[in-house]
Design a protein around this nucleic acid. Structure first.
Lengths: 328, 328
DNA sequence: GTGAAAGCGCTAACAG
DNA sequence: CTGTTAGCGCTTTCAC
């Protein structure tokens, strides 16, 4: 049933029906009686406007594009859930895509989202997307970048305090009495990873200790990754480990479990994981407040949508040190 | 830039441009020279058609609605990732929503997806959605139900062999020499849970053992759930435990870790979880082949989209018994 | 107070 | 071979 048919049925014009349906009866100076008659009929047949036609006419789709690295992982999955929940409150829907850190794919995704006329985009960009994202910014489409900043770009950003949280984590290891701390991270130019690395270096230096860093290629997974970690542990003699992200720590736990020759290390990692509460020992970490991040993302995006000239936000939400058994 | 402007610029008509752009130059009997001239221009200005307008005109949105319980969890997250990847190959996009098992919310979500004119829906229904889903089926919109079947409905379904996999799991515990097996499950009418329960009961009976079942309310989480498990363990004297799903097992592991008075149980659970490989002991499970499930969902949905009269599929993908240390 | 009409950008039948 | 035309369903301005 379309607005046209309703109009025909009621012997009024399309525009009258449209105005009433959209609560603009007053402004359209429709008589109360007519408005009620229309509303009653509309309700009785359970009419639903065609969102597509509406979007085409208004230029607003009430859909937000969400581009993450991997919707199935323990960081982006929950983030996506919260984002969806907050957006729903404002009657927005979510079109999502995972880039799997593939720059080409990420750009294709961005293009198709623009085709679909989303009202805004939330993204954790991959490396090498500067140019595309700059173009996106130039279109003035409301945009929020999160998790991984692209330093050269001026836009809204929400993320955690990677550098200082990293410092706090490593400093805490020293305070626990560990003398020599190895770091395992991803061999990536992603800013948040570089910041975490920088934090580690500074604290190690200021404690007059020596750096021991293992950088693992991003796409090296499974056994090859474990093998790298295994030999890193064998060839060095630190007494504690710091991981730049949770899945590296999980890999290391698997290595430690499989190869009993390794000693016990003090351990702390960036990002929490359900495993860390159950492992023996339980694992200390710097936890990002995921729900808060999601909330700020939505608030910032809606702010931009409602006022295109709003100055960009740059919101840093501190991570929290969760102390468990691995740092005792 | 719109098709109209291109037409004006090139002094041809809109329809000519439209045909060429959609690769229908031949069928529209456009001269090769003209087609090339149009394509060259279109490429040079990087023209992108407005997907909204196209959808309105064709009635196809190339968007699929995905409705799950929780996009952030360890089952639906990865499923969503794979579904998206397969769908992308066919140039479809995904509009997703999490129901959090709330029937009202689930129905609202369904409604708004229909408004957006999705070309098909993939859903794991909540309880109490029979009526709504039946209406959906009546609309003939391509639909695939997965994970949780609604027995009264005739439509496409993809899921695992809950009943027989459950039997295999429990039987395996008996074969390992355990005599008395407790089951911890969700107090839910969801078919897959009932099937798993039924599998347990039958095997326990056929082994002349006794049933010991703890049914936990779905929305009881955190400490209250753990408390229930704790007292269940204290009040009974089985030597092995069977869990109907992974997060219940995770809760139990936390209880066992916290309360050292409990003995060691043989354990097996439905659904794998990254934790199970790392726990001490590692946990045996029945693993659902997530990628295969996602693939079949997409294949089935696309089949239905391409041929509305295709008979419904009902595909059961067997789960796999993963034997680890907890059953030794 | 109400309705006619133009327009959002595209498709597709049909006429030349 | 190519262009005209009439929609898709809705919004919104402006004239009556």
């Amino acid at each position: 049933m379309s607005i046209k048919e309703i109009a025909a049925k009621l012997n009024v014009s399309k525009s009258t029906v449209s105005l009433v349906i959209n609560g603009k009866a007053e402004q359209g100076r429709i008589s109360e009686a007519l408005a009620k008659r229309i509303m009653d009929y509309v309700d009785s047949i359970g009419y639903k406007p065609n969102a597509l036609a509406k979007s085409l006419a208004t230029g607003k789709s009430r859909t937000i594009g969400l581009i993450v690295e991997n919707i199935g992982d323990s960081f982006f999955g929950p983030i996506a859930l919260y984002i969806e929940e907050y957006l729903r409150k404002y009657n927005y829907h979510v079109l999502y895509s995972s880039t799997l850190n593939d720059e080409k794919l990420a750009n294709t995704i961005l293009d198709t989202m623009l085709d679909k006329y989303v009202d805004g985009i939330i993204m954790a960009p991959t490396l090498g997307q500067e140019e595309q994202v700059q173009k996106l910014i130039d279109t003035k489409l409301p945009l929020v970048v999160f998790d991984r900043r692209i330093p050269s770009l001026e836009t809204n950003y929400i993320g955690t305090d990677n550098y200082s949280a990293s410092k706090r984590a490593v400093q805490y290891l020293f305070e626990c009495g560990y003398k020599s701390i190895g770091m395992i991270t991803i061999d990536s130019k992603q800013v948040q990873m570089l910041d975490r690395l920088r934090g580690y270096r500074e604290v190690v230096d200021s404690n007059n200790s020596t750096e021991d860093i293992l950088q693992i290629p991003y796409n090296l997974v499974g056994d090859s990754r474990k093998a790298m970690i295994d030999s890193f542990l064998s060839e060095n003699s630190f007494d504690a480990l710091y991981f730049s992200t949770n899945y590296l720590c999980v890999s290391a736990l698997k290595v430690l479990k499989a190869n009993k020759k390794h000693k016990h290390y003090g351990m702390i990692t960036f990002d929490d994981h359900e495993i860390f509460e159950l492992n023996l020992p339980t694992i200390s970490c710097m936890r990002q407040p995921i729900e808060e991040i999601a909330k700020q993302i939505v608030v910032t995006l809606l702010g931009q949508i409602n006022d295109h000239k709003k100055p960009f936000d740059d919101i840093i939400i501190p991570s929290e040190l969760i102390i468990r058994e691995s740092t005792q």
